[in-house]
Design a protein around this nucleic acid. Structure first.
Lengths: 146, 146
DNA sequence: GTGATAATTAGAATAATTCTAATTCCAAGC
DNA sequence: GCTTGGAATTAGAATTATTCTAATTATCAC
């Protein structure tokens, strides 16, 4: 967007703006994420980073990514580092993930909204599953199913 | 819903209706999921199942759960058994997960729709993150960012 | 400069999931 | 009715994703 391949100084600035130390590891992790704007996994980032910094460890890549996520420089696509959960409610519904208690509540979706959601997809995209998750805090423990 | 605690015959019927053999392992896994309609992890299901079948293995619980999901008897909440992905696009947007190629495409969301999404939450629920993922097939490789 | 303190790194450990060899089940042939 | 072949299912072992923590590096006060 701004610059095609950001240089050292620009990357430094970006990190310092978030009050994090611009370490070489963080710079190179941020660099590879901005260079190729796909949605890499931590392991893919690790592979790309090793090209210019062969001694880095995967754990450090995880650390750097977490820092960048906290800074708001990158987003996690599945921000769910937790095990898969199973649910016998087959109605079309969304989930509310309570960050305080860790509980998951079902949220009913009006059918009209589902239609609307299908409409936002550009031509050529055909979704058979729509997954909608809200994350936040619930005012005390309300009443619903968890 | 139908019966509070389903009995052996009812569970059998439910499995046979899906053309899967009603094995003891599958029955007991289905039973614990229906008994306590929370959103257990595979490990939690494992723990509950062991009470009545101490010899079962965690791998079998995974197998049974997968079968039940394929039958449409239960749903996976994070149907993403893949590593977390990272994304430098900070605009409010959804993701389209192409089941054919495995690629992830960004989908723009009209601001009006985001407002609408916040409205479906019952009073007392406050979401700071909304995660919306579509899964399906895209007609050839369209053009968008992946 | 030097030492105390905090931040960061990366090897080792853990947790979640999948692979595959062994077992069980069923049906057809004898 | 028993036996054999083949498919389905199970579960131990292996793999993959993530986190923990000891060691290192950097920063600040003196």
């Amino acid at each position: 967007m701004s610059s095609p391949i950001e240089n050292h100084a620009a990357l430094c600035e970006r990190l310092k703006a978030c009050d994090v130390r611009p370490t070489p590891q963080r710079e190179v992790v941020l660099k590879v994420i901005l260079e190729k704007r796909d949605h890499p996994t931590a392991d893919e980032v690790f592979a790309r980073v090793k090209a210019s910094m062969p001694t880095i460890s995967l754990a450090t890549v995880y650390n750097c990514l977490e820092t960048l996520v906290q800074c708001g420089i990158v987003r996690q696509v599945n921000l769910e580092r937790a095990p898969t959960r199973y649910c016998p409610n087959l109605h079309e519904h969304a989930h509310f993930h309570d960050e305080t208690t860790g509980q998951i509540h079902d949220v009913d979706l009006p059918p009209e909204l589902m239609t609307r959601l299908h409409e936002v997809l550009p031509a050529g995209f055909n979704a058979n599953v729509i997954e909608l998750t809200f994350r936040g805090k619930a005012a005390s423990s309300p009443h619903g199913t968890n």
